[in-house]
Write a protein that binds this DNA or RNA. Sequence first.
DNA 1: TAGATTGTTAATCGATTAACAATC
DNA 2: TAGATTGTTAATCGATTAACAATC
Lengths: 224, 224
Amino acid sequence: MTSSETEGAPVGLVASDDGPTRLSLGVAARLSRYLQVLTQAQKMGRETLSSQELSEYTRVNSTQIRRDLSGFGKFGKRGVGYNVDALADEIREILQTGSQQNIALFGAGHLGKAIGSSDIFADHGFNVVAVFDADPKKVGTKVGGQSVRPIEDANRVIAEQDVLVAVLAVPGEAAQRLADELVAAGVRIIFNYSESLLDVPAGVTVHTSNPAVDLLHALYFYLS
Amino acid sequence: MTSSETEGAPVGLVASDDGPTRLSLGVAARLSRYLQVLTQAQKMGRETLSSQELSEYTRVNSTQIRRDLSGFGKFGKRGVGYNVDALADEIREILQTGSQQNIALFGAGHLGKAIGSSDIFADHGFNVVAVFDADPKKVGTKVGGQSVRPIEDANRVIAEQDVLVAVLAVPGEAAQRLADELVAAGVRIIFNYSESLLDVPAGVTVHTSNPAVDLLHALYFYLS
DNA sequence: TAGATTGTTAATCGATTAACAATC
DNA sequence: TAGATTGTTAATCGATTAACAATC
């Protein structure tokens, strides 16, 4: 699918076939980071936040933040900054985070337990509806309030609960085969926390997380 | 520090005050992702890899991959691709990953155990030299072959082992105070796995990981 | 040779930044 | 009013991509 710029559209918006406008990759990524900071600021009781403060936390240039936001409306108040609650709502609307999404978690090892028992997904409106493990000894144990289920149940749960997102906290050897099955079952977004690389059909998104890779280039900039 | 383009320098290289050239942010990030794929390909016994294949795994355009690499030399063979071992070595050299780095891990909960017992850092030449926890009940337990130490020992260990990198797998409430102490002790790169945002002085890099934020914009592109 | 893939050019697009008038 | 911060312009730089000759 090729997209071209819409005449007169705000910067960062791109025409698409299926709707009025679609955010560019960079803008969508940055908006979700702003939202993360705003969510934290809410918890800390802040009422307003300036683009300069947002910049310190996100490491995004403050001019760019104002530019990103001004494409969608005039959300700020000059001399004051942005209202935290109102801006968070605006960004949620832009990112269309209204729909509750069900997530399935695979792997009940240390990492699976860490993810399953944290509020990190719940905080953003995501719902971990099931935890699976291939090891019969782990089945039935509790992870974050959920009973671990046998991996054989995955197909049925994915279909019944409309699960689009799977989080893989499994050993590298198991990841590719599992990914194939999940894609066949209807999963469209895979968060891969195994060290293995995943091959998936077009239309499926894989997000592979590897802290060592991030560290590699963080160190490069520190050392040079 | 302002940097300007060096006349005739390869694209992606930027002049710096302290050395001949310095990679741009994007190039360094991409190179480390290529290295991740190459490392995996080595494990799978692959001898060569084409820019097209690298592209499928990294989701980086294949022309850009060839462009990135050709800035440093002619590493490929036309009609064949890139030699996996040789290219991995070249990228390691470019990223200057020669120096063994010592890492300290904070928090021996589920996430700390997951990180401490994985090979993810060791695979890239990083050395987890100590695991700390504030909870006396966790002190002395084993995490990935290491005995968990009391947090009071952190200052000494950081100094003695020249620890530049700290990984924070602690509750959000504890993160900022711990970060302040670590920075004072000499830590310069912090990997923050808590939900809290960290305020650090200039010159210290924070890498905050939040899968829910990544999911937010992955979903945006799926839904629209 | 024939097929495949690199290395490179040229053109376009989006990101980044400084600067500043508008205005709260 | 005085100070602060937004919204916006203009200019520059880096990323992205298609295309293709070179060559393995």
